[in-house]
């Protein structure tokens, strides 16, 4: 059973884009330890010969024809935006690089 460190939780919070205070990190590290201890039980029966199930009801090849349907009006599309300008979503400066 792997122990999870506070640093690991901090890294997970970074991956999940959630700012966390020191107190939150401390508290959550403790809880994660307990929860992971409980859920790790799945490994007891998950042997190599058991295939994983990702969809409860197996269905294949669900597709739609390549046809255009009307989009939202730009007003509707932008209706929930915290900020907009020039018919675009206005967001704080993007500092990173795109993929």
């Amino acid at each position: 059973m792997s122990a999870i460190s506070r640093e690991e939780v901090a890294n997970l919070a970074r991956l999940a884009r959630i700012e966390m205070s020191d107190a939150e990190l401390d508290h959550l590290s403790g809880e994660m330890q307990v929860i992971l201890g409980a859920v790790a039980r799945v490994q007891e029966v998950a042997s190599a010969d058991v295939p994983p199930t990702s969809h409860p009801i197996p269905v294949n090849n669900v597709v739609r024809e390549d046809a255009v349907i009307p989009s939202l009006s730009p007003t509707d599309a932008l209706s929930g935006a915290p900020a907009s300008s020039e018919q675009r979503f206005k967001v704080p400066q993007i500092l990173g690089e795109a993929e």
Partner: peptide, 29 residues
């Protein structure tokens, strides 16, 4: 937040098979 962090952990490289992958197998069982 607790669940997001737990899920982020279960899917992260190095832990996927032990956690998410195993859970999907339990689902089969």
């Amino acid at each position: 937040k607790r669940r997001i962090i737990l899920g982020t952990y279960a899917l992260s490289s190095g832990y996927y098979d032990a956690y998410y992958g195993s859970a999907q197998k339990v689902r089969t069982l």
